[in-house]
Design a protein around this nucleic acid. Sequence first.
DNA 1: CTCATTTGACCCCG
DNA 2: CGGGGTCAAATGAG
Length: 329
Amino acid sequence: MASSGGDVPAQIRTSAAVSDLIVAHDGVVTLRTFLLQLDHQRAPWAQQVIEDVLSRVSSAMSVLGVTSGGAAPKGRSPAAGSDAARPQQSVSSCGNKRKQSGSSSRRSHRLCDKKITSTLEDGHVWRKYGQKEIQNSPHPRSYYRCTHKSDQGCGAKRYVQRCDNDPSKHVVTYYGEHTCRDPSTIPLIVPAAAGDHRANNLISFGPANNAAASTVASSSQAYLATMGGSTAAAEQQLSTSWCTSDDVFSSSAGSFMQVDELIGAVVGSAGLISSVADHRGRLGGVAGGGGTASASFPPSPNESLGFVVGSFGSIAGGDDDDGMFALDP
DNA sequence: CTCATTTGACCCCG
DNA sequence: CGGGGTCAAATGAG
């Protein structure tokens, strides 16, 4: 309060800078991965430049005494998954409405992934289940769980709170791992590490769920078909929708590669992009193959993901195998 | 009517 | 004991 008059306290500014640095750092890491994948020719150059930027950012961060929020201590894992298996609640019949709130997952799961973003979009569909005022914080914290917790037992959760010193940004803490199969919660992009060449031209909605990932999920960098029209908005949506809050795409959506860049890359290698569905739900149906558990897509435009997907270029034909298929209206 | 969000109460952990 | 996380009834929106 006292600070309203003149300048912002150095501490505040510092933490704001720290936040920005973290975001920038994550963004560079993401960028590096992309560049190295998309442009093998200039990869060395790109790597050098990025490493340079990265080292400077890192040193700046270390000077300020911070570590990258999402990069290193990539939590997510065991503890998380166990969330679903919380001790059963005995419905103590009547009057007593309180069951028993998953004690096991209360404060026990230390493993988390904290990020600072300017958008709440992260490629997943969340359902808010609570909000609370937090001590020492001017902003309430919102609690979200994956929309598919009920139907698929997905144990992913996230807590969102506005940045104290920069209300335009949110501190998002992720707990748990997505085990759901809804296309809107499946990462569209997976690091090409798998080395599945075909992936470059294919899109598939297979069960990107862990195990099955082998088939499809490996569709690395290609995919993306915009929904005709609203580019700017769509771009933003898209760019954020890729975030899987994991691996490369973790963290700040703001620093993701622009869709058009990707598309450019895709077009370059695949030749053509067939855009698909302007209905999010549609996609679900198609994707699901069986499409049962799909339908729940974000209701609000705000949550809408620029989902997309489609087949690129040549693959279209009918000779798709496995989980791959061409999207034919 | 269905589903998501809001909100107040409950409950566990530190 | 208090704070934080979760539940579930109430309410709203599509």
